[in-house]
Design a protein around this nucleic acid. Structure first.
Lengths: 196, 196
DNA sequence: GTCTATACGACGATAGAC
DNA sequence: GTCTATCGTCGTATAGAC
């Protein structure tokens, strides 16, 4: 079974990052969990960074899957963008390790075409829906920044346990982010230069 | 000069965290920069955690100073809350290390009365301004969560370099967060049960 | 492809002299 | 209060046998 260890290592690395976060991830623990020697992983990955990079790519791909799917199953621009915001909160809740990993994507973007592709696809889906609100590229990008930024921050607040005890469920957090998203969208109104 | 080293260590630890962030902070580097032996700091702090905790307290106090001052010099509830949101963005820009440190505050709150006090003062100032919008405690807390969460997220996006190149200044980020804050506040309207 | 063995460095923390 | 010296632990990474 050649190459069998490589994908197994990736899988275990994923679980490890899910548990302890990207910072505390170590090659030593990876080898331990895989039940192989500390040297073995280095036959499949040049170094630690290469392992982490492959996880970043997986994280972004997973988010693309979720966000694009969430937006596709909603009808109308506002509902699509709200669905995105809720999906961000849910992803951070279900995959805190991968969510934290995402922020490292900006740094390592040069090193992986896949990364560029997946982030591009997320952006394209968002842009598509937001076109309904704003035709101008720059202003529309600003709107998406406010929307995604707000979703990100609310997700973190929820993750950090800052929500009040009696309303700390994921559904509560999704509700809050939905309200915020609708507010941000309502503030820009609808771009009248768009034909139905 | 008894105790002189302790405050010097705190000062240097602060600079160190500002530079490399809380995760990469090490006692070894702290000693090195202070020009003392690796053992010296342990006469003043029980362990690494105690050093970091003292920095968390400093970070929260610094934010209290900024946020309360920013809100005090603005007139009217909306302007006060917008000023808070902008101050969050500016703090994350000017003190990224301390900003990152803040998220560890939730974990260690039990261990420092000062921490509880400072966070309480920030919350009180926010609550005071938000009373204009919502009288009900729970719903007002939700509003502040959306506001602070959005500010936090937009601050992080700016910090991570996700703003477009030609609009990546702090002032641009402040402008974006102000728009988002106003949108979130506008969505709840004004609580009519408030007199004046 | 995987192993054992190992080099090397960093860090946290302590003991005991002064 | 500060030093020197030191221990133990862990991590990254490589060399060479199988």
């Amino acid at each position: 079974m050649p190459g069998g260890l490589k994908s197994r290592l990736q899988q275990i690395a994923l679980e490890l990052v899910r548990e302890v976060g990207p910072r505390a991830f170590t090659m030593a623990e990876l080898s331990r969990r895989a039940g192989v020697s500390a040297a073995a992983p280095y036959k499949h990955f040049a170094d630690k960074d290469e392992v982490v990079l492959s996880l970043v790519v997986r994280s972004v791909r997973a988010q693309r899957d979720r966000y694009v799917r969430a937006m596709a199953s909603a009808t109308g621009p506002e509902e699509k963008l709200v669905a995105f915001a809720k999906a961000v909160v849910r992803f951070s809740y279900e995959e805190p390790g991968l969510f934290e990993l995402t922020l490292m994507a900006g740094r390592s973007k040069d090193r992986s075409p896949d990364l560029v592709r997946y982030t591009g696809e997320i952006r394209a889906a968002l842009t598509d829906a937001a076109r309904y609100y704003i035709a101008n590229d720059a202003r529309r990008y600003d709107l998406l920044m406010r929307l995604a930024g707000a979703a990100h921050g609310i997700a973190i607040f929820h993750e950090e346990g800052l929500f009040p005890e009696d309303r700390a469920s994921v559904e509560d957090a999704e509700g809050q982010v939905a309200v915020a998203a609708r507010a941000i969208l309502a503030a820009v109104g609808v771009d009248s230069s768009i034909e139905t």
